[in-house]
Design a protein around this nucleic acid. Structure first.
Length: 195
DNA sequence: TTAATGATGGGCT
DNA sequence: GCCCATCATTAAA
């Protein structure tokens, strides 16, 4: 039932991919540990989107966004945290989905270790893009990896989240004149980031 | 409870 | 030099 999502899943409209990623399972294998998490919160970054890294054209950093769909785009933010994105859209169209939060399923002990927190703060384990990367040990070495090979990192299909359970909200940390509802999360899930 | 702030470094004008 | 798709800690109320 759970199959690795193919490139055709990612190579579609970014807002659609962002919503359909909710409930899907991230599988992440490291030399030391193996992790599984359920995606519970995403944000869409579109073509012609002033908030997108790709807005002002291709640079060395945002280059993955201009490549094929189904690749990772990892970047450093605020000098100390990483953010994990999945590249979307047909080649030539720059789009990506930011993975903002996930619910741990496997490898929880190792994730708590990486975050240096205890079990009583379990809901704090990956409820934010920086925390998610910290819990998995994701850094710039995980940039531009192919999600469709089933190797270090990939995403598996899982039950589709019902539309009425998807909350649409403003994206976090941006100063937009007319905010669009491009942040999506599963209602009532305790691993979603606040705000 | 909410609000303010410091850490920290790469990318861009 | 300034801006950041952040987070943990501290201060205020």
């Amino acid at each position: 039932m759970t199959e690795i999502l193919k490139r055709s899943f990612y190579a579609r409209e970014t807002t659609l991919v962002a919503q359909e990623l909710l409930g899907k399972i991230i599988v992440f294998q490291d030399k030391k540990a193996s992790f599984k998490l359920k995606i519970v919160e995403t944000e869409a970054y579109l073509q012609d989107d002033p908030a997108s890294h790709a807005y002002k054209g291709k640079t060395k950093r945002n280059e993955p966004m201009f490549g094929d769909a189904g690749f990772t785009y990892v970047y450093l933010i605020y000098g100390m945290y990483y953010c994990l994105n999945f590249v979307t859209e047909a080649k030539g169209i720059a789009g990506a989905v930011l993975i903002r939060a996930a619910e741990p399923l496997l490898g929880i002990t190792e994730m708590l270790n990486n975050r240096n927190i205890s079990y009583n703060k379990i809901s704090n384990i990956a409820n934010g893009p920086g925390k998610l990367c910290q819990s998995l040990g994701i850094n710039k070495e995980y940039n531009k990896l192919d999600l469709c090979l089933g190797e270090k990192i990939y995403v598996c299909s899982q039950d589709k989240i019902k539309n009425e359970m998807i909350v649409k909200a403003k994206r976090i940390g941006l100063r937009e004149k007319e905010p669009k509802l491009l942040r999506f999360y599963i209602a009532y899930n305790k691993f979603v980031s606040l705000l």
